[in-house]
Simulated scan of single mutants.
Amino acid sequence: MPRNARFTLPHRPTVYHVISRTALSGLPLGDIEKNRLLEIIKYFSSIYFVDVLGFCIMGNHWHLAVKIYPRDYATRQEVQERFVKRYGEDVHFGDQEIEKFSKKWTDLSEFVREIKQTFSRYYNKRHNRRGFFWGERFKSMIVQEGSTLVNMLAYIDLNPIRAGIVKKPEDYRWSSLGYHVQTGNKDGFLSIDFGLKEWNEFDPQEIVRKYRQFVYETGAVDAGKGKTIDQKIVEKARKKGYKISRVERFRYRCRYFTDSGVIGGKDFVQEVFDQVKHLLGSKDKRKFTPVGGVEGVYSMKRLGES
């Protein structure tokens, strides 16, 4: 039976909600696998002409809200810069490459295919297996910007709440709200253009605060599909104006005090790292991660990502 054609709008920037499920039983995506899948999504979003608006990686599926830009946005200079990042400076780059990659890197199906194939190879190697990892082809739908988009983003971020995994959506670090709150949107990975002009906000922190408020108020409503955010938690957040306190930000960094490998001042971490990097098989210099909420303290490991 032939597949239905995928709905795309190739001639203008378009937002899509992508959903992909595994072919394996149970919950094959553990913490390590979720971390790796997120790294892969981040990498390819820096190669393709896309903005990532939201995501959530669950135990057996993942959601992605992404805005794809058409070929008109792929200038020769930008394509070349991304080509060098992907393949290095020694690989030939000419008119044929411009034509090929300006088309490829503005294509939703190619974007998702590379993410899924790269992760499948990683998973099979890690678990010493062969065969398919992903199920049927990914689902995608075109999403109108504005209120439809922000409701869809809230739906994505509320997945861990409906599943009963966490009590507050930002406690789940493999989701967009968790990434905003726990990492401060590290590397500018996520776009904060939710399309709600009526918010009339330009301060990124205030935009995220209003989005968090929207997610909480939406998540408190019983829609008959899974669990909701506890009303007491919502009331407590309301009293704080949905602002994340310094204490709360610090709490999200507490893993650094148990899993950082080396923690302390930047010079101290560098000194110790130089002495133990042979044990880690590392020959490169490393940029150490500042621990949010504690001035002047750094971690050897990048726990925001790993």
Rank of each mutant, 00 (worst) to 15 (best):
V91D: 04
F111V: 02
E39S: 14
Y242T: 02
P204F: 08
S120V: 09
S176W: 06
G226N: 09
R286S: 02
E217R: 14
K167N: 13
G164L: 09
A223W: 13
L149V: 09
Y43S: 02
R129N: 05
E145F: 02
L303E: 03
K301V: 10
V150M: 03
F194Y: 15
V291H: 03
K125R: 14
G30T: 08
E78F: 02
A237G: 04
I98Y: 15
H17I: 10
E206T: 15
R76K: 14
S102I: 03
Y298E: 01
T258I: 13
T106H: 01
H11A: 14
G54M: 00
R209A: 04
P204L: 13
K116N: 13
E39C: 05
R86A: 09
T14H: 08
F138H: 14
R121L: 10
P169A: 15
R137V: 03
Q213E: 15
F101M: 10
Q96K: 13
T118Y: 03
D90C: 00
R129H: 05
G131F: 08
F194G: 01
R36Y: 11
T289A: 06
G224V: 10
I47M: 07
Q77I: 07
V215W: 08
I165E: 08
D51C: 02
S299N: 01
S176F: 10
K125A: 14
V234Y: 05
F214C: 12
W174M: 01
P2D: 06
K243W: 10
P169S: 14
R173N: 08
L280W: 13
Q182W: 04
L149H: 01
K116M: 12
G293D: 02
G226L: 07
E39N: 08
G26S: 03
L190G: 07
Y69R: 11
E217H: 05
L153M: 09
D187S: 10
L158S: 04
V50T: 12
I40E: 07
E81D: 15
R21L: 06
I165Y: 08
F268S: 10
L196Y: 01
V215Q: 11
N35A: 08
K125Q: 12
V247A: 15
L64M: 10
S102D: 06
L27T: 11
F268A: 12
R130I: 13
Y216M: 13
L196T: 11
E305A: 08
R173C: 10
R238H: 05
R253D: 09
P13N: 11
K100H: 14
T228G: 08
H127V: 00
T75D: 08
F214Q: 12
V166I: 12
S102R: 14
H61E: 05
E235M: 10
S147A: 15
W62S: 01
Y211H: 11
N159C: 09
D274V: 00
R246Q: 10
D171L: 11
G184Q: 04
K34T: 05
G26R: 03
D203H: 12
P160D: 06
V291T: 03
Y179V: 01
V269G: 06
D90V: 07
G54S: 11
A163Q: 07
L108H: 00
P204W: 12
K34A: 09
G178R: 11
D259W: 07
K104I: 12
F250I: 01
R86L: 15
G304I: 00
L149Q: 01
L53C: 08
S176Y: 07
V234M: 11
V262C: 09
V262L: 14
E235Q: 15
P204C: 03
L64Q: 03
K240D: 12
